[in-house]
Amino acid sequence: MEFITGSAIAAIATALGAIPALLFIRATHRFRDILLAFCAGVMMAAAVFELIPEALKQADIKIVALGILLGVVSLTLLEQNIPHIDLDHSSSAIQIDQKSMLIIAAICLHNLPEGLSVGVSYASGVEGLGPMIAFAIGLQNMPEGFLVALFLIQQNVKKLYAFLIALLTGMLEFFAAIIGYILTNYVTILIPTGLSFAAGSMLYIVYKELIPESHGDGHALSSTYSFVFGMIGMLWLTRLF
């Protein structure tokens, strides 16, 4: 029951993040950059201080390194072959060259490894790891839902439809979490591999996507502090769990 609840909350966070986009159309680059950097700090702390150490307890360095590389390579292939949202570093709103449906498909596919990481974390049997990773992923999903809804609204999609689409992209993550949970319960070696895979996916998103986007509009200093506070906040949460 705890697994279902945590996975659902992480997935629904995408829809919760979309709500502010329904209330106002434009958000300043400074606000978005600070939010993205904070989420980057949260994900970095979860990957480096929780997922990787726990994977090392259950397997040797070869398995962990393989899992991390698989996560990085998987996200690289997704990025190279499937279009996704890029923030245009200017005073304008989000700009994109591809059609809306392709963007929605890309967001759905990017949510798959995040959902798997939640399921694997709960299946690992480590006390507190599942809720903590679900919280980290959910926190990262909120600005993602905001940006998706904002993009769709600017493409003249009705606000209700934009909200429902953001909700659906998040729910895909919920089903991915269930798959990850089931597989790791049947194949033991998938637990350390899945944990390190999730860490690699998170590190890729942090370094390749969140940090560059949060530093591209001249807000590097405030984004840096936001990143550090996000990491400290996540460390504090690990002590609570």
Rank of each mutant, 00 (worst) to 15 (best):
L152R: 08
L56C: 00
A11I: 10
D217F: 02
K99R: 13
F146I: 05
Q154D: 14
V120P: 03
L129H: 07
L35I: 07
E209H: 13
T14W: 03
K158Y: 06
Q140M: 11
E127Q: 14
L139M: 12
F229D: 05
Q58C: 00
E114C: 07
G6Y: 09
L183S: 13
I137Y: 04
Y225I: 15
K62I: 12
Y207P: 00
E50M: 14
A37S: 13
S100M: 12
L168F: 14
S7I: 07
T188M: 11
M132L: 15
T184I: 07
A18K: 08
V73S: 05
I133G: 02
N111H: 07
L210W: 09
L235N: 11
A11S: 15
F227P: 02
V228A: 13
N141E: 04
E209C: 00
S124V: 02
G194Y: 09
N81F: 11
A55H: 03
E209D: 15
P53E: 10
I104F: 01
I9T: 08
I211P: 03
F197R: 01
I189P: 11
I232F: 14
A134I: 06
L139G: 01
S117L: 07
V73C: 06
M202Y: 14
S100P: 08
I103N: 00
T188I: 12
A199D: 12
V148K: 01
M132E: 03
I153L: 11
D33S: 15
F241K: 10
A198P: 08
F24K: 15
A47L: 05
G119T: 02
F146H: 09
M1D: 08
F49V: 06
Y186R: 12
I52V: 15
L210G: 04
A55T: 04
S90P: 09
R239F: 14
I12A: 11
